[in-house]
Amino acid sequence: MKSIELFAGIGGMALAAGWAGIETIAFCEKDQFCQKVLKKHWPHVPIFDDIKKMNRQVLEEHGVIEKDGTVDLISGGFPCQPYSIAGKRRGKEDDRDLWPEMFRIIKEIRPTWVVGENVANFANMELDRTLFDLESIGYRGRAFIIPACAVGAEHRRDRVFIVAHSSSKRLERVHNESNRIDLQLPKEIISGFKRKATPRVLRRGNGIPNRVDRIRALGNAVVPQQIYPVFKFIREIHEIETK
């Protein structure tokens, strides 16, 4: 399977996707420090820095996808500031609401799978819009809220993951064979909702290169273990579809 990751940050999604056997073939990320991290760990994967200028034609010109072709998966943790309880929660009235740009690219590329990520409060504000947009172009989707403490992190960090599949007759075959796959979240993740996590206070360190950039990048990053089960199930379902 091949994937394009939008709003990639330092590549948390790409790392988890790789664990599941999904190859990332392009990133979109504007932050220069994050770009350095991506180039270090994925030196041969092209990085596009402006989501508003990224489109099918650009991807075809750079050889990311073939003309009239597609990819198996488009993923992205679009900016959370419009929905975070730490902000003003202006939603789609906020200039940083970039779901419409991700949706535009999905419409142009038409991947088999879509995975979106955001803060938990997104489910209270704009989840209905996102699912409606995807359904309007033939995708079936649902959302999960998974806490980071369920996968061993020392903080709660609830995140909502939107998972959508392009509707097709092949999906009926997946449902018929779904007894081969546990499509429920693992028990350790379910139990994480009842777990109390107390974050440790990081020691201040003077002289650490790019310390502010590193902390900001980590704060915005997806915990790879948190989203890995999603990619794992997608990979297993893909194997049934293409059998």
Rank of each mutant, 00 (worst) to 15 (best):
M1R: 03
K2Y: 01
A8Q: 00
G11L: 01
L15T: 11
E23T: 11
C34L: 05
V37S: 02
V37Y: 00
L38Y: 04
W42A: 05
D49W: 08
H62L: 07
H62I: 01
G63I: 08
E66F: 04
V71S: 05
D72I: 02
D72W: 08
I74Y: 02
G76H: 06
F78H: 06
S84H: 09
S84C: 01
A86I: 04
R89H: 08
K92C: 10
D95E: 14
F103Y: 11
I105H: 00
P111C: 10
V115W: 03
G116P: 03
F122S: 00
F122H: 13
A123M: 11
T130C: 15
F144R: 12
I145M: 13
P147H: 07
R157G: 01
R157T: 01
D158N: 15
V163C: 09
H165R: 15
L171K: 04
H175C: 07
N176C: 05
R180G: 10
D182K: 15
K187A: 14
G192L: 02
K196T: 14
R200Y: 07
R200L: 12
G207Q: 08
P209Q: 09
P209K: 11
D213Y: 06
R214P: 03
K232I: 05
H238K: 14
E241Q: 14
T242C: 13
